[in-house]
Nucleic acid binder design. Structure first.
Length: 609
RNA sequence: UCCUCAGUAGCUCAAUGGUAGAGCAUCCGGCUGUUAACCGGAGGGUUGUAGGUUCGAGUCCUACCUGAGGAGCCA
């Protein structure tokens, strides 16, 4: 939402303008972490509104529900206009952004349909395992009849079965013949489920005909073959219970129409309700799970490296300070500088910029390890490829050299891409249709071919021989500019490329010095459209060389005593790299901005939500 | 941090210095096993903020705020 709109809304609300979501009209002001229904973990049965609903009860705003759910916005604030609506006819909308995109031919045989559906609707389409069902029943979270939409569309439930689904209305289309069609989405897969609501339902006129985008419902009915085109099965509803109304459809930001990503960033708490951000969330989860599966299957241990670090490590960017000192009365030493000896940790502390140094310690005892978690950079970077808080995957392998390291990076990336193509085919189909036409094809190409590998020296030669005019001249010893990386990966080899053995002057102290003494055993994996997606190296395992490199880089060795110890006691060659999760998701989905592949992006000047 | 561009209805955008417009969304009416539904109507605006130039500013000038793209830094 634009600033002036926020301001106007804020003024109407009688508060100071803020750059946050709580000025969004019609949206609850409670934020996660504050008291409000968002935070409650009560089960649905505790939170459900009464079954029988008269217009009077709706008009009352259901005070009982609001009380139980801990926030006034839990129930609808039914206005005079809404009451008027309940006596009048419906409207019809069917936006481009929410129409179903996966359909199954009704001519397909049942077996083929199930197989096809499981591929299209993801792992959620698989029948739940007996163990999961048992746990679910014992927790009273679901009854046997309640199903995820992915299961229903995936063929896990036979036609003719009585089922219940819960989710949010995407659209409603009415027929004056006394029939309404609801598209229901529960996030379990890309597709929405069509619900046929007959005019004989007891709440048809008073409630069903007023459902719109964003309303939460529980639908019970029979799974039937669809009479219409566009879906193979649908639910013929016998009961539609409205769990949560949309207070004011006029100002609900996720109206059924196309929205710009810039606008949706301003309503980050509601954007997961769109096709795009639901798909991104499922792909992100798929990739994260695949990371753990890959390393677990390969014998790597997941090491939980610390979020708070004491050392200003390796100059990997600016750090966020973690402190409990009173900023208004900062203790100072004799020189007038802030005195951190009184601080919580008795010294300066920061949010980690990388788990690498810590994970090296575990590598030199457990051989194969990785860390995967959030990292933080206080750089004032304003680009589509940078976040102040992002997630990084950092494996570290003992008894491994640079070549082994590149092999591991290639195997990991191929595993991730293969997995997402298999398990999130429905979402990938959407990305290929709407976000990036090459999304599927280029992933398949990466999976099918070996990565191109070249040394920095070869890359420089290729750039010098290129016909392309560069803004920055290429010469040995200077770092590759964005335009150079783009040329290499987008024009020269046209797929991911591994560049190795960079000059030591442009790389950090911990990278292993090559035999010539001019280059280090560094490697970057460059991806088309993204640039550097992986950065890694063989580490310097020789203490004497490490000390020289620390001195050359002008780094005080004192805070690195523990890191030097690793070279004093049983040192071995080892190597590792960092893979940025958001850049990976960006490459996989074709989403151009990493701010749109993390749920709540943190960037300079922006930490709303 | 630097460079460039942009802020007008809920959203996406028009509007020679001279009365503020469209499409979509919302609401209402009509029509239909619908599926980007369709047809008709209605409501909706301190043109980002503060100054300035002018008889007159959405439009020109200055500063600031916000956003985007690119660069640097990096994952």
């Amino acid at each position: 939402m634009r600033s002036h709109v926020r301001r106007r809304q804020a003024e109407r609300d009688g508060c100071r303008p803020r750059r946050s979501c709580d000025a969004v009209p019609g949206v609850p002001s409670g934020q996660p972490g504050q008291s409000g229904s968002n935070q409650l973990t009560v089960s649905r049965s505790e939170c459900s509104p009464p079954r029988s609903r008269s217009p009077q009860r709706r008009a009352s705003g259901r005070p009982g529900l609001a009380r139980k759910c801990g926030g006034s916005h839990a129930g609808p604030q039914v206005s005079a206009r809404n009451r008027r609506r309940s006596q009048q006819g419906p409207s019809k909308v069917m936006p481009r952004d929410v129409r179903p995109r996966c359909s199954l031919s009704r001519a397909d045989g049942p077996a083929r349909r199930v197989a096809l559906s499981q591929r299209r609707y993801g792992p959620g389409a698989r029948r739940r395992s007996p163990a999961v069902n048992e746990v679910a029943r014992s927790c009273k979270l679901v009854s046997m009849a309640k199903r995820e939409i992915a299961e229903l569309l995936g063929g896990a439930v036979g036609v003719g079965t009585e089922v219940a689904v819960r989710g949010w209305v995407r659209t409603r289309r009415d027929s004056k013949a006394g029939l309404s069609f609801l598209q229901i989405n529960d996030g379990s897969c890309f597709a929405s489920l069509q619900v046929v609501a007959d005019g004989t339902l007891p709440n048809y006129v008073q409630e069903v005909q007023h459902l719109g985008s964003g309303c939460a419902v529980t639908v019970r009915g029979e799974l039937v073959e669809s009479l219409g085109r566009g879906q193979s099965v649908e639910i013929r509803a016998t009961e539609i219970a409205v769990e949560g109304w949309v207070d004011d459809p006029d100002t609900y930001p996720i109206s059924p129409k196309r929205h710009s990503f810039e606008f949706l960033r301003e309503v980050a708490h509601l954007r997961p309700r769109t096709n795009t951000f639901g798909a991104v969330a499922r792909v992100r989860n798929c990739l994260a799970q695949a990371v753990h599966r890959f390393f677990d299957d390969s014998g790597y241990l997941w090491i939980h490296t610390p979020i708070i670090t004491a050392s200003d490590t390796e100059g990997a960017g600016e750090l966020f300070r973690v402190s409990t000192l009173d900023l208004a009365r900062l203790p100072r030493d004799a020189d007038g500088a802030p005195d951190f000896s009184d601080d919580f940790f008795g010294r300066e502390a920061f949010l980690t910029v990388s788990g690498q140094l810590n994970v090296e310690a575990y590598c030199l005892a457990l051989s194969k390890v990785y860390t995967f978690g959030p990292t933080f950079r206080a750089e004032n970077s304003n680009t589509s490829r940078h976040l102040a808080e992002f997630w990084m995957i950092e494996p570290e392998t003992a008894f491994a050299d640079l070549s082994d390291n590149a092999d591991l990076a290639e195997a990991l990336l191929k595993h991730l891409f293969r997995t997402v193509l298999e398990e999130r085919a429905d979402d990938m189909e959407f990305f290929a249709q709407r976000i990036h036409p090459e999304a599927i094809r280029r992933l398949q190409a990466v999976v099918d071919q070996p990565f191109e590998r070249m040394t920095y020296a070869e890359a420089v030669r290729a750039l010098q021989n290129a016909k392309t005019k560069f803004a920055f001249e290429v010469s040995w010893g200077s770092d590759l500019q964005s335009e150079h990386e783009r040329y290499l990966t987008e024009e020269y080899v046209r797929r991911p490329v591994v560049v190795t053995n960079y000059p030591k002057g442009i790389k950090p102290f911990y990278m292993r010095l090559d035999d010539g003494g001019e280059t280090v055993a560094a490697m970057d994996v460059l991806a088309p459209g993204i640039g550097e997606i992986v950065g890694g190296s063989q580490r310097e395992e020789r203490l004497d060389v490490l000390d020289i490199r620390l001195a050359e880089c002008g780094i005080d060795p004192e805070p690195y005593g523990w890191y030097r110890d690793l070279r004093r006691y049983g040192t071995v060659p080892h190597a590792g790299f960092g893979l940025g999760l958001e850049r990976t998701i960006s490459y996989v989905t074709g989403m151009a901005n990493v701010r749109d592949v993390i749920p709540f992006p943190r960037t300079p000047g922006s930490a709303d939500f």
